[in-house]
Amino acid sequence: MSTKKLFLLFIAFFVSLGWVHESEAAGLQALKLGVNDKLTGIEAVSVKDSYYVPLRDLAQELGWTLNGLSDGISVNAGGSSLKLLNDHATATLNNGSKVAMDTFLRGGKLMVPVRVSALLGYTISYVPEQYLLRVQNSAAKLNDAAFVSQYKKELQPMTGTGSQTPTTSGTTTPVNSGKPGTTVYMTFDDGPSATTTQLLDILAKYKVKATFFMLGPKMNTYPEQVKRTAKEGHGLGLHGMTHRKEKFYASPAAALGEMNNDNAILKKITGSGTSLIRPPYGSKPYFTNAFRDKVLTQGYHLWDWNVDSDDWKYKENSAKIYNTVMSQVHNLKKSQSNPIILMHDQKATLKVLPQILETLKKEGYHFEIITKDMQPHNFWKDYR
């Protein structure tokens, strides 16, 4: 047996015990992640010789509970828990101690090292020659040899993956493959409307995909526009039914009822619903913890924005809207944050939108839609 092979087996043994950080292993490739006795579709990607996976996907497979906090995300796995801090470099354990834990965003998903599972009591198996990367606990029935035997054909390096993310319409859209802060998310509230067709025409002309947070009654009025929005691969989101503070925010149950009714209309028109929501007037200050606990525990994901066009206020003053958007976009560039631009599905938007799209493209931005797999961006930093 060669020295290199002995070294890899040595490393694999200690990684499987959770004693060695994956970055100490060499020659990593993108692999499918095994979870207990299942080979999942989760792509474990190699970054700086360490394997990373999307936190939300891993949590779903292992039944973990995620809660957004002001200083990070708590991860609860039965009797064990930890907190991933917002610095993207540290985790706090149950006993209060801190450990290094690099995380980053990839295509809108929070990526965490596979070793986070070892800190929560799981065992990691890594055998590079057999392309095995597996997280398991006492629920696993197969040993590693049996697991490899069962999935031998599927245990191969993943090539050409990670370039696409599913959209709500079943099509695909490119994941940000450029530098941080080069992706922009155009979002439109309050539609559909009599001018949605023209709005979609503009987006098609510039080959831009956007995300629409729509109102239930308006979808009933303009069902063909909703169908076209879905067919052309735009993101679909919910904005409620009434857009009236005294009704939507009457109680947490009222807010959930509006989103459920809105979703039922979307399903009736397009055949599929969505988990993306944006409450009327944004989530602050009205969408408090009581509202979020009621609504988000039903599988919805809360999205706000970080660029407000104020197009509802400036109406036909296109120059003011344009300058308002671009000044905020340029401020975000300093922090390498991806702009999430709030606009409205209204006639006045049609006049200024082409200029905004042209400038953003000239400045090197590319456009993506919001999907359910992305880490939500909202004013409360609630990442459920």
Results as ranks from 00 to 15, higher is better:
355 Q>E: 13
12 A>P: 03
371 T>Q: 07
351 K>W: 10
311 D>A: 13
184 V>M: 08
129 E>W: 08
116 V>M: 13
159 T>S: 08
14 F>L: 12
33 L>T: 07
79 G>N: 10
201 D>M: 09
283 S>E: 01
19 W>V: 08
212 F>C: 07
203 L>G: 10
123 T>I: 00
69 L>R: 11
357 L>V: 11
325 V>D: 14
382 D>T: 03
236 L>Q: 09
51 Y>T: 10
113 P>A: 03
181 G>Q: 14
75 V>F: 06
101 M>V: 01
162 G>P: 08
120 L>M: 06
243 H>K: 04
12 A>R: 06
252 P>C: 09
16 S>A: 12
55 L>M: 09
122 Y>E: 05
271 G>H: 09
173 T>H: 12
373 D>K: 03
364 G>P: 05
109 K>M: 10
375 Q>D: 04
10 F>D: 06
353 L>N: 08
355 Q>V: 09
381 K>L: 01
192 P>S: 14
270 T>E: 05
237 G>H: 11
266 L>N: 11
67 N>V: 02
133 L>W: 05
146 A>V: 00
279 P>L: 05
209 K>N: 15
199 L>D: 13
40 T>H: 12
258 E>C: 05
319 A>C: 07
121 G>H: 06
148 V>C: 00
90 T>M: 04
267 K>T: 12
178 G>S: 15
229 T>G: 06
226 V>Q: 11
167 T>D: 10
370 I>V: 10
358 E>C: 01
211 T>M: 04
359 T>N: 09
359 T>H: 12
293 D>L: 12
74 S>V: 04
67 N>I: 01
318 S>K: 15
170 G>S: 11
137 N>C: 04
97 S>L: 03
328 Q>M: 11
117 S>R: 04
151 Y>K: 00
249 Y>T: 06
79 G>S: 07
16 S>T: 13
135 V>A: 01
25 A>Q: 05
95 N>C: 02
307 V>Q: 15
125 S>H: 09
281 Y>D: 01
58 L>H: 09
75 V>G: 02
379 F>V: 00
168 T>P: 00
6 L>D: 06
177 S>R: 15
312 W>S: 14
193 S>I: 12
333 K>L: 06
277 I>A: 04
174 P>C: 12
342 L>H: 11
153 K>S: 12
32 K>D: 10
189 D>E: 14
369 I>R: 03
47 V>C: 06
215 L>F: 08
77 A>W: 02
95 N>A: 01
241 M>K: 03
287 F>N: 01
44 A>Q: 08
305 W>R: 13
200 L>D: 10
248 F>V: 01
251 S>K: 10
269 I>T: 11
